[in-house]
C-alpha cells in the first residue's frame, strides 16, 4: 500500500504493508539508517524519532499513523537545540559504540526543546527509556546539562 509521509520536511512516497512499524519504512525503504533497531518493543529507545517535534519509538509506531504528520529523524535534525545537543555530545565525547546515540540525541533534543534548564529528575524522565549497553550515562547527563547551558547563554 502506498503512503505519503512527511520526513525531514519533504514528502516521501513509500510502499509498505499497513501496520508496518515506521522504523522499518525509515530504514529499509527510505534508507535513513541513522535511526536504529534495538528491541522492536519500545523498550530501548534506539529507534527514537520526532513526531511533530515529540520523541516517539518508531519501532512500535505504525506507518499509517505517521501520514499527515511531521516526522524528523537524526538526519533531519536542525535548529539551535539540535546544534547545542550535538555539539555537547562531541565536546564530552559521549559516544562509545554509538549505536544508541541517535536515539539518545533525539530524546535529549525533545527534552531541551520544551525545557531548557532540566533538573536531574527531568533528565531521568526524558532519558530513562533510552538504553545504552556501553553505559555512557555519566556523559549523557553531563552533555544534556552542557547543551542546556549553551542554550541559556
Amino acid at each position: 500500500m502506498k503512503f505519503t509521509l512527511n520526513i525531514n520536511g519533504s514528502p516521501r512516497e513509500v510502499d509498505a504493508e499497513p501496520g508496518t512499524p515506521l522504523l522499518w519504512v525509515i530504514r529499509d525503504e527510505l534508507e535513513l539508517t541513522g535511526t536504529k533497531f534495538g528491541c522492536g518493543v519500545a523498550a530501548c529507545g534506539a529507534c527514537t524519532v520526532h513526531y511533530n517535534g515529540t520523541p516517539i519509538r518508531s519501532c512500535s509506531f505504525p506507518v499509517d499513523a505517521a501520514v499527515g504528520n511531521q516526522i524528523t529523524t537524526i538526519e533531519g535534525l536542525e535548529g539551535k537545540v539540535a546544534e547545542a545537543v550535538q555539539a555537547a555530545w562531541r565536546e564530552r565525547d559521549v559516544v562509545q559504540c554509538g549505536y544508541c546515540q541517535s536515539g539518545q540525541i533525539m530524546s535529549a533534543v525533545g527534552l531541551l526543546s520544551t525545557n531548557t534548564s532540566p533538573s536531574d529528575s527531568d533528565i531521568d524522565n526524558a532519558m530513562g527509556g533510552n538504553a545504552c549497553r556501553c553505559a555512557t550515562y555519566v556523559r549523557i547527563r553531563d552533555a544534556v546539562k552542557l547543551a542546556a547551558g549553551k542554550l541559556e547563554a
Partner: peptide, 8 residues
C-alpha cells in the same frame, strides 16, 4: 568516531 556517531 564522535562526529559520525552523533549525526547518524
Amino acid at each position: 568516531d564522535s562526529a559520525g556517531k552523533t549525526d547518524g
